[in-house]
Design a protein around this nucleic acid. Structure first.
Lengths: 188, 188
DNA sequence: GGAAGAGTAGACAGATCTGTATAGTTGGAT
DNA sequence: ATCCAACTATACAGATCTGTCTACTCTTCC
């Protein structure tokens, strides 16, 4: 069992601190100390804090995709597929719950970035991807327009529930959203 | 026409900068300079940056209530009332649009605050208030459970649309949400 | 055995941050 | 006229921030 690389230790520490305390409020010294590596290892691996932030955003995006893939296994119907998306959100909430659930890490990060920032575009793309995944599932049981409209509505419900859940520090809103979304799919 | 007080000038400058750049990324020196007042005036009026943040959150909450009140005038049906809430969100988006629309200022602020922070609770209460306003409008045309469930669903759609609109820098998602919400109310 | 790559420890530069101290100015109200 | 409150201007303390520099230590692979 070989020791984890400085890079992966830094990413893990950044993930923890960026999510719990916010990006601007988290200093590189704190990340370095928490990761147990030398400060130069951060700058050798990432070049700057800004690049570490981008790596963090990409890692969280990938993390969500992995949760979704796991939930998608064995899904057969359109409803199964859509609920895999919802359940990936709920899994994400439980994963974050360890040190205080604060909602979607990507959306929270975007809230700190200025209007034209590349990181904001990355988050916008992630949310568009989620909506597109839902649309894909719906398109197997509904027409093109109904799928597109349904996916947009469902993605709104999901995102809104995530925001409220984060504010309240509970997954209750997400569980309610799951029921609402199942009903919407059923009525399509 | 007497010159505006240092306090109100500071609040206006803080509003602009906190929204556009985020709270942690905005320094008190920048606020003071932008407000055109002495630094001591900030500490005389607010005591600390943290208290200025609280004042900012309360001001934004009140600002939204004013937009909502204006939209509520002349509303008669339940649908009118619910749409007044939605239109207040759209008005808010347009007001912010001047220097780059970045979504709901209160939700963005909450994203920067740690899990138990009083500011986060304030934002959570604001969102709960909005849901409660919607419930009140629905209760004039529907039963208690239908009103409560409907208000929750509508508030999710509205919040999710606001988040997406902020990421995309456009009010298009909010206009779509307005249609979705009108349809939901119609089917109640 | 020796080169190369990854990582370490700690000091340091320079900027920026919040908050304070101090002395002076201005504009009314009584 | 004078007193008071609000406000200004500037300097400063002390902490913290990102990023750099240097010299050293491992491990691995050929």
């Amino acid at each position: 069992m070989t020791k984890a690389s400085a890079r992966s230790r830094l990413l893990a520490a950044a993930r923890e601190k960026f999510y719990a305390d916010g990006i601007a409020a988290t200093g590189v010294d704190g990340i370095v100390e928490s990761a147990g590596v030398a400060k130069m290892s951060l700058y050798n691996n990432f070049g700057s804090k800004a690049e570490l932030v981008v790596a963090y955003l990409e890692a969280r995006h990938q993390e969500w995709l992995d949760l979704y893939s796991a939930r998608l296994e064995g899904a057969e119907t359109s409803l199964d597929g859509v609920l895999a998306v919802v359940d990936a959100y709920i899994d994400d909430a439980h994963a974050a719950h360890a040190r205080g659930f604060r909602g979607c890490g990507l959306l929270n990060a975007a809230a700190e970035l200025p209007a034209g920032d590349p990181g904001r575009r990355l988050v916008a793309k992630h949310k568009a991807d989620v909506e597109e995944l839902i649309r894909g599932h719906l398109s197997r049981m509904a027409g093109e327009k109904a799928s597109r409209d349904g996916a947009e509505e469902i993605s709104f419900v999901l995102e809104g529930a995530m925001a409220r859940a984060g504010l309240e520090g509970s997954d209750r809103r997400l569980r309610t959203a799951r029921e609402i979304i199942a009903r919407i799919v059923g009525h399509l």
